[in-house]
Amino acid sequence: MYKIVKKRLLAPQIYLMDVLAPRVARSANPGQFLIVKIDEKGERIPLTICDYDRERGTVTIVFQTLGSSTQQMAKLEEGDAFADFVGPLGQPSEMVHEDIEELKVKRILFVAGGVGTAPVYPQVKWLHEKGIAADVIIGTKTKETLIMEEEMKAVAGNLYIATDDGSYGYKGLVTNLLKDLVEEKDKRYDLVVAIGPMIMMKFVAALTKDLGIPTIVSLNPIMVDGTGMCGACRVTVGNEVKFACVDGPEFDGHLVNFDEAMRRQAMYKTEEGRKILKAEEGDTHHRKGCGCHENNEGGAR
């Protein structure tokens, strides 16, 4: 069992947890993910590693309640434990292997969308520890849903905030802000790293392609085992089929087939919806044989 040693509500429906998992903490690197399973009957849920403390043996996860499993996770309190917590999985960010001197001259911009702010944090922090100040854009719906502003400020170069409704910082989408920075404010970037909803990464990648800035994205397809044995997470990158769990999750954003990835991500949507309804209202929506739910079901993250 893997004990929850800290729980914090970061914003409505967004939770942070520090989980005691010494083996994962010892090997984790920025860019990697892990899989949690609440109890015996739970599903395996992939989450990006948001921080780790090798000495205390803890790993930080941040999640938003989207489906029935994450809702159930949100009910766990400090002192409770996950049945399973496995990782680190996937490849670390490329920068971990790069020459530090070369990295130092690179102008890097991170674009974080919503709960994607959390997995951006360990990367910016990692760079900060190496004496590199990367710029960060955080995009969120409204001021209320903004997370980790203070933490990010402490490790980032320039921090820009964009809200859809203009309640805080720049009014508009991250892509508008990015365009504004490059075209109006004359900012120059050699690398963009975008982590957030698939649709955001798609549009960031489309924009940076026009701007000629190499771009890395962190994909979040449906996963089951997370170790390369099932191919549920397969994505097309530059006309090649890759398993996001072992080849990724980070890929060249200009080569990813986002439309296919989004379509596959929605594969279990209705199934997930049915589960939430059932949890909330009991078994009133389970009419077998009507056939109307056959074609669409819900995934993990």
Binding site: V224, M229, C230, G231, A232, R234, V241, R264, A266, M267
Partner: peptide
């Protein structure tokens, strides 16, 4: 990669 195509490993797992 169409929706509805899976490996036997995924299905059985």
């Amino acid at each position: 990669n169409s929706n509805g195509v899976q490996s036997a490993n995924e299905f059985l797992t």
